[in-house]
């Protein structure tokens, strides 16, 4: 996995989705913007909020809390949309991840991931004493 790492850590964008804190590797993040307006699509999966316009391009926006299975948390006054690259490197595409709050940039120590999975959540780590789910968007497009 290609990482934007600091000294022995992966630099990630820390966001809150529901009650979970999720870390998205910075190299997979294109931009963080205020929550984008979405236009729903008929018969879409519940994770797909709809299509938004980003930079003149259509952007599918997914609800991160649903994606990671997070319990519903407190409503956020400043929801954001993380515009990120999803899919394998050669076929990556921009997607929007709707999160409740963009927290900070953190460094997740390499090797501290626990419960490594091949899905969206690559593992779980402790950041500032609280658990964080580290995501890997390369598998987002996978069925």
């Amino acid at each position: 996995m290609t990482t934007a790492s600091g000294e022995g850590g992966i630099r990630c964008l820390l966001v809150r989705a529901g009650e979970y804190r999720c870390a998205v590797p910075l190299n997979q993040v294109r931009r963080v913007v205020a929550s984008l307006a979405t236009h729903p699509l008929p018969n879409a999966a519940p994770e797909l909020l709809g299509l938004a316009e980003f930079g003149g391009e259509p952007l599918p926006v997914l609800e991160l809390a649903r994606l990671v299975g997070a319990p519903e948390g407190a409503a956020s006054p400043h929801p954001v949309t993380v515009v990120a690259w999803a899919g394998p490197p050669r076929e990556r595409e921009l997607v929007g991840l709707a999160a409740d709050q963009a927290l900070s940039i953190v460094e997740v120590p390499v090797g501290s991931l626990a419960g490594g999975q091949a899905g969206l959540v690559s593992g779980e780590a402790l950041v500032d004493g609280a658990p964080v789910r580290v995501l890997n968007l390369e598998h987002l497009g996978a069925a």
């Binding site: 934007a4 910075l26 294109r30 963080v32 940039i105």
Partner: peptide, 9 residues
């Protein structure tokens, strides 16, 4: 945050 992202990139 975006600046940090750009900086990382």
């Amino acid at each position: 945050l975006n600046a940090a992202i750009e900086a990382a990139a």
